[in-house]
Amino acid sequence: MHRIILSLLVLFFSSASVASEELSQEAALKWLQRMSVALHSLNYEGVFVYQHGGQLTSMRLVHGLNKQGEHERLVSLSGTSREVIRSNGKVTCILPDSQSVVVERQNQSRQGFPYLLPKQIEQISSIYRFELGQQARVSGMLSQQILILPKDQYRYSYELWIDIDSGMLVKAEIRDKQRIVEQFMFATLRFMPNFPQDLLKLNLNKGEFLSYNHQSTNTAVPSTIQATKWQVGFLPAGFRLLQHQYQFQSQPEMINPGRVTNNEPVYHLVYSDGLATISVFIEKLQQHQSAMAGASPLGAVNTYASMVGHTQITVMGEVPEQTVREIAVSVRYQP
């Protein structure tokens, strides 16, 4: 009799804890949905600090929504004055240190709002665990902590702090196991009722800049890359091919003598597990181009480059180095 009572008790408490985990997961996902709406639908301006590796930088972010669509401007306040303006399907990157301006026009299909869809949530729930954390003041705002924990070693974990009033993301930490690979936190954040007009004013400093126009296309193009013959052998569970296209880097508009660019298209495959994105770039190298090999970190974005014959394989994504490396070495040409 005692045994029955005991096992009933055990059953009761274990199902209760499962139920509370599920509740926590459900609540966490609701917060994430709210955050994803706030990030894209509010007018705001703020300065945040961003830390990765041993570097600490501050940046200004302005975001606004008008009849034309979503606009965003990100300017570095420390070091070189790099700047990225995303405006209605067009991306302009001003990178003074490489003296270049990169303009990318998005495909129609890529425009629009990246809200978290129920389908996506289902997909990410199978590979990440979500937890509702504590509440605390961050950047002067009472915020809710959300933890996103991966179920395998191929992904990062995330700790997000979401402003309880607005649903806005105010702080984020990305970890590889326990090590913080990247974090950002708003120091000031201001919401505005109207579209911030100065958002779209471009201020190019004097000096010589290269302007690149990236264009991508899904249609078959005469190319030395035979897309169908390239196989990506390894992908961690949950990563799905979202898009694949050719990227073009046209000749610079303002030529700096002695500089050469590649006119060959780059075959670009995009995979996502719903949270992290991995790009695989396949590019036939020209004579003047030097080959890359090995790993290169850029905050939480890891890159691993390798060569297959004269073809450069570059895998890049917000995942640990091991993941991009294993994917890169698995890319094969199958004639």
Binding site: Y50, S76, Q106, P114, Q120, T277
Partner: peptide
């Protein structure tokens, strides 16, 4: 690599859920 990072970020922005403002790595 700059070009790759820009291309990658543009896809990472709408596809995944954002933990950081898109392009933070390009600017930072």
């Amino acid at each position: 690599l700059n070009g790759y990072v820009v291309n990658h970020s543009e896809f990472a922005a709408p596809n995944g859920m954002q933990a950081l403002p898109p392009y933070v790595r390009v600017v930072g």
